[in-house]
């Protein structure tokens, strides 16, 4: 049976540079990152090239993605949040396309690596932290002090608020990473059953239809998860950005 973990292996295609003790190489992960970013950029620029007032199907998709993210950001973080629109849009599209490309058989799933999702969530966390302090100064600490809480439990509340704030990048990144990892392992395990049973003769081939049906059903679910996790990541980013803009509870 094929190893369900093998799909997550990073393979160096060719080395690029060596900084100190660490090798920087062009890997399969890097290739799919380039593919995702190139695909997004090419698609959005090619479909909007003619700037039609009455959009065709492809231009509609580009506009739809724009308006979807813009509405999400505006309803969550208000008009001021639109400053971060390029950032949120890039995050959403990058994760969505990376997730969808990962569902193609033999493709590598960039977002199934914790270091990638953690880097993305840390970029959100640092953006919130830096912009929050730059815009609000020390008033940013109001984020940790809810109004109308009795004084004697305030230290406990502040402690919990600070803890939850610090743990945000972890939950933000692990949610995406774990969903993608678990989904791809499940798909691979069921797919492995098909080949395993298929090798056992007629009865095995008949028996293999059950995992095959499961793989089909699970693939549909994974398509939903691919979109949903990108959306969840984007909307949490919007909520965190809203905290940076309006730190009062």
């Amino acid at each position: 049976m094929a190893d369900p973990i093998k799909q997550f292996e990073i393979v160096d295609l060719f080395p690029i540079a060596r900084i100190g003790n660490t090798d920087i190489a062009f890997t399969n992960s890097a290739a799919f990152m380039v593919l995702a970013v190139g695909g997004i950029t090419t698609f959005l620029l090619a479909t909007t090239r003619r700037r039609e007032v009455v959009p065709g199907r492809m231009q509609s998709i580009a506009e739809l993605s724009y308006e979807f993210v813009a509405n999400t950001l505006q309803t969550t973080a208000g008009k001021e949040g639109m400053k971060f629109f390029p950032f949120v849009f890039s995050l959403f599209m990058f994760i969505l396309i990376a997730n969808l490309i990962g569902l193609i058989p033999y493709a590598f799933t960039i977002t199934s690596h914790i270091v990638v999702t953690l880097a993305l969530s840390m970029s959100v966390f640092l953006t919130v932290l830096i912009y929050g302090f730059w815009k609000n100064g020390l008033h940013f600490f109001n984020l940790f002090v809810p109004k109308g809480v009795p004084l004697y439990i305030l230290p406990l509340i502040v402690f919990i608020e600070v803890l939850s704030f610090i743990s945000r990048p972890v939950s933000h990144s692990v949610r995406l990473f774990a969903n993608l990892l678990a989904g791809h392992i499940t798909l691979k395990v069921f797919a492995g059953f098909i080949t395993l049973l298929g090798g056992l003769g007629i009865a095995g081939i008949i028996g293999a239809t059950l995992p095959l049906a499961l793989v089909v059903a699970f693939f549909a679910l994974e398509l939903l998860v691919a979109f949903l996790q990108a959306y969840v990541f984007a909307i949490l980013t919007c909520i965190y950005i809203n905290d940076a803009i309006h730190p009062g509870h």
């Binding site: 990073i10 160096d12 690029i16 900084i19 660490t22 090798d23 920087i24 190489a25 062009f26 890997t27 992960s29 890097a30 990152m33 380039v34 995702a36 970013v37 890039s90 990058f94 960039i110 690596h113 270091v115 990638v116 880097a119 993305l120 970029s123």
Partner: peptide, 11 residues
């Protein structure tokens, strides 16, 4: 290191 380098570049 490789992943972070390419992620930063691409993103």
């Amino acid at each position: 290191a490789s992943q972070l380098f390419w992620l930063a570049l691409c993103f």
